[in-house]
């Protein structure tokens, strides 16, 4: 009897091995243990902070004392609809839309050539050319554009050398988007936004294009389609989820940015700047909080539409 037990008994185990065996039998527990640290962190630090912020947006500011009244009210949200505040929201959304459309147009050829023609060393070169501006310091990029757009900077000089100075002056004289120099006009703000978020458009577009089978394009041209028809009816519909996915980034990032329009722009506020000023010098935390709800709601709607268009599968 005792001999038999000795033979059957497994070799003595270390505590760690016993623990490992115990965990192996409970895969659910393992998943829970793996998830717990990050979920706790994100739920407490991130969602907790978001909740405190949202709560603030239902408070209001006592007009005379400048103190926050901690009674729940919707009056702060009503303030958003005042013409001066609503202008800020409209301006920001228009800029985000313009930047998204432009980056889709500028980014597509790059993504297309990178996905279709680039091989080996060229593939690496395209990767570096997109990744380097993506990962380079945000402020350094903004700074570079300040150098480029300054009145005495490169663009003015280039236009002058080409004898096209009048084109630049004409652009700056345009009502609404013009200004004293490129670095103090909406055109300048737009160019910098376009530059800084462009890689975020290129990468998902390229990923979507890489999944388009070459045989589809062959089939299209075999059946007599012109290159334009192939592009219009085969490539574009298949790349569309990638473009929409990219536009999530370009749109969201433009909505929330407050540094670019502050450094390069006409001085008129965007949502991000309004938030920054309201919570800082103006001390109106409830209004600042209500302003941050605007991009959250817009992005919520945007994401819901993007999901319908299949952009999440392309992410």
């Amino acid at each position: 009897m005792s001999v038999a037990t000795e033979i059957i008994a497994p070799p003595p185990q270390s505590a760690a091995a016993r623990l490992a065996d115990g965990l192996w039998r409970r895969p659910g527990l393992v998943v829970a243990l793996l998830l717990a640290p990050a979920l706790l962190w994100l739920a407490v630090v991130y969602l907790g902070s978001l909740a405190t912020l949202l709560r603030q947006s239902f408070f209001s500011l006592e007009e005379f004392s400048g103190l926050v009244v901690e009674d729940y009210t919707l009056s702060t949200y009503a303030e958003l609809l005042q013409p001066s505040n609503f202008e800020i929201i409209k301006r920001t959304v228009l800029m985000a839309a313009a930047v998204s459309v432009a980056s889709a147009i500028v980014g597509f050829p790059i993504a297309y050539v990178a996905a279709r023609y680039a091989r080996g060393a060229w593939k690496a070169a395209f990767y570096i050319a997109v990744m380097l501006p993506l990962w380079s310091s945000y402020l350094v990029k903004v700074y570079a554009w300040k150098l480029i757009l300054a009145r005495e900077g490169i663009l003015t000089w280039t236009f002058g050398k080409l004898g096209l100075g009048f084109v630049l002056d004409g652009l700056l004289a345009l009502p609404g988007v013009g200004g004293g120099s490129l670095s103090t006009s909406y055109i300048g703000t737009f160019l910098v936004f376009l530059y800084i978020w462009l890689p975020y458009m290129i990468l998902p577009t390229q990923a979507a294009l890489e999944r388009v089978p070459g045989s589809l394009i062959n089939a299209s041209s075999d059946l007599g389609a012109t290159p334009w028809a192939t592009f219009r009816h085969v490539i574009l519909p298949l790349a569309a989820p990638g473009i929409v996915a990219g536009s999530i980034f370009t749109f969201s990032l433009t909505l929330g940015d407050y540094i670019i329009p502050q450094v390069i722009g006409s001085g008129r506020y965007f949502i991000g700047q309004a938030v920054y000023v309201q919570q800082g010098t103006a001390g109106n935390i409830p209004l600042a909080a209500a302003f941050t709800v605007v991009p959250i709601v817009i992005m919520g709607v945007y994401l819901a539409v993007a999901r319908k268009l299949g952009a999440f599968d392309a992410l």
Binding site: Y46, S49, L50, S252, L253, G256, Y258, A288, T292, P295
Partner: peptide, 12 residues
Amino acid sequence: LPGIITGIALRS
């Protein structure tokens, strides 16, 4: 979500 939301949420 835009970074400014994370920022102001943490500050508040």
